[in-house]
């Protein structure tokens, strides 16, 4: 499947295990969908605060907060990416 329009995915987190799981889930979801996307991990707190988040991890797709304060699972991420 050729990438039509690349989605921009951001995972915001201070580097805790939940944030790493979210990041890995994103990669796995992309792999399962055979999809290309720009995945950015934001760990710097000053950078993170620009997005006005209070709880981590945060999953953002194309600048929209999809999940915050908990780990997003693979099925869920796949839904976000395909809908």
């Amino acid at each position: 499947m050729p990438p039509i329009e690349m989605k921009n995915i951001k995972v915001l987190g201070t580097g805790c295990s939940k944030c790493k799981t979210t990041y890995n889930n994103v990669l796995e979801a992309l792999k399962q969908l055979n999809m290309q996307a720009e995945v950015i991990k934001i760990e710097d707190i000053e950078e993170m605060m620009k997005y006005n988040v209070l709880t981590t991890p945060v999953l953002m797709i194309d600048e929209v907060v999809k999940v915050k304060g908990r780990v997003a699972d693979i099925t869920e991420i796949k839904q976000f990416l395909t809908s």
Partner: peptide
């Protein structure tokens, strides 16, 4: 409210902000 120590910093900043 649920809490994870990994959220303490964003919370702190968000509150004082």
């Amino acid at each position: 409210t649920p809490f994870c120590s990994c959220s303490s910093v964003p919370l702190f900043i968000g509150f004082v902000k």
